[in-house]
Simulated assay, not measured.
Amino acid sequence: MAIPSSQRIFVDAVTRYCLARNITVEVRSDGWLIAMRSGERRHLAFAYDVGLNSATAHQIANDKAATADVLQCSGVPCIPHTLFLGPKLAAYAPAAGSWETMLRLLAENPRGLVAKPNEGTSGDGVFRVTTKPALELAVGRILAAYPSLAISPYVEIEDEVRVVLIDDRPVVVYSKERPFVVGDGRHSLLELALAATPAERRSTVLPGLFAELGRAELDAIVPAGDRRILNWRHNLDSGAEPVLLKQGESRDACIELAIKAARAIGIRFGSIDVVRTDGAWRILEVNAGVKMEALSRSHPELVYAAYEAALDKVFA
Rank of each mutant, 00 (worst) to 15 (best):
P207Q: 07
L192K: 05
V182E: 13
A220G: 11
L165G: 01
D167T: 03
P198Y: 07
V222N: 09
R215D: 11
T197W: 10
V163E: 04
A195G: 02
L194S: 04
A224G: 06
R202L: 05
D226F: 12
I166C: 05
E217C: 10
V172W: 00
H187F: 06
R201L: 15
D167H: 10
Y174D: 01
L206R: 06
P223Y: 01
R162Y: 10
E177A: 12
D167N: 14
V155K: 04
D159E: 11
P198V: 06
A216M: 15
V172Q: 11
S148V: 02
A193M: 12
E156V: 04
P207F: 01
S188R: 00
I221L: 10
S148Q: 09
E200M: 13
E160K: 02
D226T: 14
L149H: 14
H187C: 08
I157L: 07
G214D: 11
D184G: 01
E212P: 09
R202N: 09
V163G: 00
L165M: 03
V161I: 14
R162A: 02
V173G: 01
P198R: 08
G214W: 13
P153A: 03
G185K: 08
K176F: 09
V222T: 12
S203Y: 12
K176H: 05
I151P: 02
A196W: 11
T197Q: 07
P170Y: 02
P207W: 03
F210M: 14
V181P: 00
L206Q: 09
A150E: 09
R169W: 06
E212G: 08
E212V: 06
V182G: 03
Y174T: 01
L149Y: 14
V181I: 13
L190Y: 13
